[in-house]
């Protein structure tokens, strides 16, 4: 694995969490008090969206492209 992207990613992550400690959250919700919450939520949310949608697509929603041809008025 190339070392460059990994190092820069870690750097960005550290900076992000550090910034969070500097910022003064003025929201009530508990999760805004956690440093790095949005970072984690972004990552997990992204994974969740992809996995759930792909699963739905596979078992139910996705059809071959010609699905509607011939049936349409």
């Amino acid at each position: 694995m190339k070392i460059g992207p990994a190092v820069s990613t870690v750097l960005v992550l550290v900076v992000m969490v550090a910034l969070d400690l500097l910022a003064d959250p003025h929201s009530e919700a508990w999760w805004h008090q956690l440093p790095g919450f949005d970072l984690l939520f972004g990552f997990l949310g992204c994974a969740g969206i992809v996995i759930v949608s792909k699963a739905l697509g596979k078992v139910w929603l996705q059809r071959e492209e010609g699905f509607y041809d011939g049936g349409d008025p």
């Binding site: 960005v12 992550l13 992000m16 910034l19 969070d20 500097l22 910022a23 805004h32 790095g36 919450f37 949005d38 970072l39 984690l40 939520f41 972004g42 990552f43 997990l44 949310g45 992204c46």
Partner: peptide
């Protein structure tokens, strides 16, 4: 910061 974190996480 929250927005940037969200974007980086995504």
């Amino acid at each position: 910061v929250a927005s940037l974190q969200l974007l980086v996480g995504t």
